[in-house]
Nucleic acid binder design. Structure first.
Length: 566
RNA sequence: CGGGAUGUGGCGCAGUUUGGCUAGCGCACCUGCUUUGGGAGCAGGGGGUCGGGAGUUCAAAUCUCCCCAUCCCGACCA
């Protein structure tokens, strides 16, 4: 393509409200424009990158036997009611009504729709199946942010596997894990797999693929020594045991005037690891107590997973007062019998603990949690901190901020049962199929690549996803220079290189700056000065290297480099 | 949803405190001349419901009220 004919609206100044590097550079480079919060127009350059990312995903899905579909984005409420998720999805789902007042939803994911199609599976001989699509998803995110990293409308590759049994699912899951690793490698992303919370998807196992990035929104706990890695919503660690000596026969009430915090109580003689922190939560309109050790933090996702909660919020001061008779600072679970009490595993077996007495300015000490508190359920609720010992090898864990680039789930038979997706097995018995689902956001991966590959001059796309693989820059629009550049351009096209010819009537500095901003991996600069020596200049965007090469080897040099890096 | 900030040509901004000239500057755009290997110079030119509505006033980008939008932090979130 000739640059003079293209719409590549580069800007001298990035919009002031773009903070993430990918956001600023994608706008500045003329790849995207915002329509409104969380909705972006893909301009020609952006769409080319998007399509190249999608093509890599498609190739790898096809390689593991995936079959491409395209399902509707707008769904009748009925299918969502059938799975039960019409009620459990909450505000994340855009809902609307048609002229006949039928309830409709915009798809946030497609388990329900693929399950509906899958009812036509009838025999185990048809299994396994891997079905996928690359299609628009809508999610009414509370806070879209950082350009393409978190939006409300985006393209996702979502795939679904159907197997006769769990062993089959394990194979599909593994096939996807390997496919995803290949995808991220081809995208140039240093992604790694971590244990994850399955959240609203259901199922019992899920793995996220994380890319370290300060603009990300997830914290990952990773062991620098062994292979342990988990989202902080799932991560655990070893804890040093705390010795509880001299358990007293019963809790002792003592006055703590003005003491409202763990730290203040510590000064009054109760070490934080000998305190029980009591938090009052409202889980789907039910008041529930969450107990963690004084020096630990509650991870709300762990609490949600442990209690199968849909909507969780802290109780208001009024609700707390009404249920426990005291305000935060003096709360405890001793003697509470009418509320669910979820306690963190780190508290199991502890005695000689201090906790609030549900009477402002009073606490109990000498509490034996199993004797004195009616714990309903024990669960892993506490949030791991960096530096704690790895559960597998004891090495100090590190915490890394990441972007979630992909997420794969073992779903089981829940959707098959809700939708009646059954097949006959070899004995002629009807069995529900075992499903998995697997997602990669295309635009988010594009933005994550931009986050990973850029410098002060602009983007530095890997060849695999670059909007153009090479650019031939004409420095002087006279006949001999133009003719030489055109010949290189045609030569590269003949070698199958996705090449751009910068034939604009602009100064050299403008052309160089634009080529660097939009991140073309290879630039051939054709000017009368070097041409007089029978040479052109080859500049590599990735490392800034520039060198002169003979005109007659230029096409092969660039084409070979591009081909090697695809 | 809570907190903070911002809305003035395509982009970046000034002007608002203290109401008052035809709403200004840089970039970008158009024309001409010169220039031409790292975002050119000179001259001329086009483009703006000052986020929207209502109000106060002789007079509103500027003051008042209401609303909307966007960004950041948090909550939340596959």
């Amino acid at each position: 393509m000739r640059w003079s004919n293209l719409f590549i609206p580069t800007l001298r100044d990035a919009p002031a409200d773009a903070e993430a590097a990918s956001h600023a550079l994608l706008v500045k480079g003329g790849f995207i424009r915002q329509l409104h919060a969380g909705h972006y127009s893909m301009l020609p350059l952006g769409w080319k990158v998007h399509q190249k990312v999608a093509a890599i995903v498609r190739e790898e899905m096809n390689a593991i036997g995936g079959q491409e579909f395209l399902l509707p984005t707008m769904h009748p409420a009925g299918v969502w009611k059938q799975s039960g998720r019409w009620d459990t999805m909450g505000e994340i789902m855009f809902r609307l009504t048609d002229r006949r007042e039928n309830d409709l939803a915009l798809g946030i994911t497609h388990e329900e729709i693929f399950a509906t199609v899958a009812t036509e599976l009838s025999s185990y001989k048809e299994l396994p199946q891997i079905w996928y699509q690359i299609q628009t998803k809508f999610r009414d995110e509370a806070r879209p942010k950082s350009g393409l990293l978190r939006v409300r409308e985006f393209h996702m590759k979502d795939s679904y596997s159907f197997d006769l049994d769990w062993d089959g699912l394990d194979e599909q899951f593994e096939a996807h894990r390997v496919a995803y690793e290949r995808i991220f490698e081809r995208l140039g992303l240093p992604a790694f797999a971590v244990e994850a919370s399955s959240g609203a998807m259901g199922g019992n196992t899920s793995t996220e693929f994380m890319v370290p990035c300060p603009a990300g929104e997830d914290d990952v706990i990773r062991c620098p020594n062994c292979d342990y890695a988990a989202n902080i919503e799932k991560a655990t660690s070893q804890l040093d045991p705390v010795e509880d000596n001299m358990p007293p026969p019963e809790p002792e009430r003592f006055p703590t005037p003005g003491i409202r915090t763990i730290a203040a109580l510590e000064k009054a003689g109760a070490p934080a690891d000998r305190q029980i922190k009591t938090m009052v939560m409202v889980a789907d309109d039910e008041v529930v107590l969450a107990l963690v050790r004084g020096d630990h933090q509650l991870n709300t996702q762990k609490f949600i997973d442990a209690t199968s909660t849909i909507v969780l919020r802290p109780a208001t001061a009024e609700e707390t007062q009404a249920n426990l008779g005291a305000l935060p600072g003096s709360l405890g679970a001793v003697g509470v019998s009418d509320l669910r009490i979820i306690a963190d595993e780190a508290l199991r077996g502890r005695t000689h603990m201090t906790t609030g007495a549900n009477d402002d300015d009073w606490h109990y000490r000498g509490v034996d949690i199993e004797r004195d508190i009616a714990v309903t359920e024990w669960a892993d609720l506490r949030e791991v901190s960096a530096g704690e010992p790895c559960v597998k090898c004891g090495t100090a864990l590190e915490m890394i901020r990441c972007v979630e680039a992909g997420h794969i789930f073992k779903l089981g038979t829940m959707y098959a049962e809700k939708f009646g997706v059954t097949v006959s097995d070899a004995e002629g018995k009807q069995r529900p199929v075992v499903m998995g689902s697997y997602g990669i956001g295309i635009g988010r991966n594009m933005a994550t690549i931009a986050e990973t590959y850029h410098d002060e001059h602009g983007l530095k796309w890997p060849v695999s996803v670059a909007p153009y693989e090479a650019v031939v820059t004409i420095l002087k629009l006279d006949e001999p220079t133009t003719a030489a550049a055109e010949e290189l351009y045609r030569g590269l096209q003949a070698r199958g290189v996705d090449v751009l010819l910068d034939d604009r009537d602009a100064r050299a500095g403008v052309k160089f700056a634009d080529a660097e901003l939009i991140g073309i991996p290879y630039r051939l600069t054709v000017g009368p000065r070097s041409l007089a020596d029978g040479e052109v200049e080859l500049t590599v965007r990735a490392n800034g290297d520039g060198k002169r090469i003979a005109v007659d080897v230029a096409v092969d040099t660039v084409a070979d480099a591009v081909t090697a890096e695809r």
